[in-house]
Computed example of a mutant assay.
Amino acid sequence: MDSARRWAGVAALAIGIFVLITIEELPIGVLSVMAPDLGVSEGVAGLAVTVPGILAGVVALCTPVIVRGMDRRLVLVLALVSVVISCALSMVAPNFAVLLIARLFAGISIGLYWAVMAIVAIGQVPREHVARALTIAFSGAGGALVAGVPVTAWIGAHVGWRAAFAVVGLLAAVVAVLLLVLVEPVRTPAVVTPRKMLAAARTRGVRYGLGLAVLTVVGLFTTYSFVSPVLLERAGVPLGDIGLMLLVYGIAGLVGNFAVGPLLRRSAPLAVVVVITGTMLSLLAVLLVMDAPLSALLIMPVWGLFVGAISVASQAFIGSEASAVLEEATALNSAAFNAAIALGAALGGLVLEAAGQSAMILTSVVLVGLGAVVAGRYLATTGRSRPGAPVAAR
């Protein structure tokens, strides 16, 4: 029974990530209806992704230092409470300025959750089951792409974007209770200090991991933050079908989350090269081929397949190449990942406003391509292929 409860706790962690990914990317799915309702352009509305992403990066970086001996499970509960506050404010936001204030609470929640979730997941199971536990926990990210973002996009198009925030807020409250009931308390004996964080950042594996996260995620979100208008205007997808396209993308992402497992067990650096290269080629297809609903229907699942593997591949890379500084590397990787999402959304908005969609997508291709080059260089200079169990977080 105790074992069953622990695995139920791991599943609850996955639902928590589902909520966090959904709230983080919800504005992407409802951008085309939210922007005109608040009287701003789509490029400006992209700040709803940028602002929480920047704050999440800062919070993730500070969390291990601040929480010290605190039960990491309670940190996750506080993160979900912050989601509830963010959603409540978003529901009643009379203008874009108030929405941005609401999104600050989303940033706090994202930073808190991602900084400690992997540590909590590891603490739920025996050492020999760590990889399985983390794969299950991180499947919540793919699940959000499958159901969370598409469903909220559908709600936004058919009921209203404020209703989408209401649904996510309610789910966050339920998951907070589940974590309190099902998840075992986890405390880390070692005290993380700013000096230890700096020392971890100097290690080769962490340096490369952070560089890969920045290049790849900034490049990805330069375009993905505006996927709704890209589908609507570039591919001619009807507004009511955008949720379906995101659903196809998300299903493929969930498949990618699990399909990359065998490659990760062989070599995490090799898996990262494959995933980033596939993401770059997918974005190139968006730029050159995606000009009709049918081509969008073919390209979106391929794109989603590789994107769905990014989080777990990133965590595996940090886990295998920086295992000696696990908690510090986890926080640094989480900070870089979330800050990169923010930077990508900001960069995409700037390029979109200044030069249009083609230039925006080309920027993504170049940045993710540079990430593939860096990953390939690491693999070549490492000169080895060792197991890369996923033991660190996004």
Score class of each variant (00 low, 15 high):
Gly205Tyr: 03
Gly205Trp: 07
Tyr208Leu: 08
Tyr208Ser: 14
Tyr208Met: 09
Tyr208Thr: 15
Tyr208Arg: 04
Gly209Trp: 06
Gly209Glu: 07
Leu210Gly: 07
Gly211Thr: 08
Gly211Asn: 03
Leu212Ser: 07
Leu215Ala: 08
Thr216Cys: 14
Val217Ile: 15
Val218Ser: 01
Val218Lys: 01
Thr222Pro: 06
Thr223Arg: 00
Ser225Arg: 03
Phe226Pro: 11
Phe226Thr: 08
Ser228Glu: 13
Ser228Asp: 14
Ser228Ile: 00
Ser228Pro: 02
Pro229Gln: 04
Pro229Glu: 08
Pro229Phe: 07
Val230Ile: 15
Val230Asp: 05
Arg234Ala: 13
Arg234Ile: 04
Arg234His: 08
Ala235Glu: 08
Gly236Ser: 10
Gly236Tyr: 08
Val237Arg: 07
Val237Ile: 05
Val237Gly: 06
Pro238Arg: 03
Pro238Ala: 10
Leu239Val: 15
Leu239Thr: 14
Gly240Glu: 14
Asp241His: 02
Asp241Val: 01
Ile242Val: 15
Leu244Glu: 12
Leu244Lys: 11
Met245Ala: 15
Met245Glu: 03
Met245Ile: 04
Tyr249Cys: 02
Gly250Ala: 12
Ile251Gln: 00
Ala252Glu: 09
Ala252Arg: 03
Gly253Arg: 06
Gly253Ala: 12
Leu254Thr: 15
Leu254His: 01
Val255Leu: 14
Val255Glu: 03
Gly256Asp: 04
Gly256Asn: 05
Asn257Pro: 03
Asn257Cys: 10
Phe258Lys: 03
Phe258Val: 14
Phe258Ile: 05
Phe258His: 11
Phe258Thr: 06
Ala259Lys: 04
Ala259Val: 04
Val260Gln: 02
Gly261Pro: 00
Pro262Val: 09
Pro262Arg: 06
Pro262Glu: 08
Leu264Gln: 07
Arg265Met: 10
Arg265Ala: 12
Arg265Leu: 11
Ser267Arg: 06
Leu270Pro: 04
Val274Leu: 06
Val274Gly: 01
Ile276Gln: 03
Ile276Asn: 02
Ile276Lys: 01
Thr277Asn: 06
Thr277Leu: 14
Thr279Met: 15
Ser282Glu: 10
Leu283Arg: 05
Leu284Gly: 15
Val286Ala: 13
Leu287Glu: 13
Leu287Thr: 12
Leu287Gly: 10
Leu288Val: 13
Leu288Ser: 13
Val289Tyr: 10
Val289Ser: 11
Asp291Gly: 14
Asp291Tyr: 10
Ala292Thr: 14
Ala292Ser: 15
Pro293Ser: 12
Pro293Asn: 12
Leu294Ser: 14
Ser295Glu: 13
Leu297Arg: 14
Leu298Arg: 10
Leu298His: 05
Ile299Leu: 13
Ile299Asp: 11
Met300Leu: 15
Pro301Asn: 12
Pro301Val: 11
Val302Glu: 04
Trp303Gly: 08
Trp303Tyr: 14
Leu305Lys: 03
Gly308Thr: 09
Ala309Met: 06
Ile310Cys: 00
Ile310Pro: 00
Ile310Gly: 00
Ile310His: 01
Ser311Asp: 01
Ser311Phe: 06
Val312Trp: 00
Val312Gln: 06
Val312Ala: 00
Ala313Thr: 15
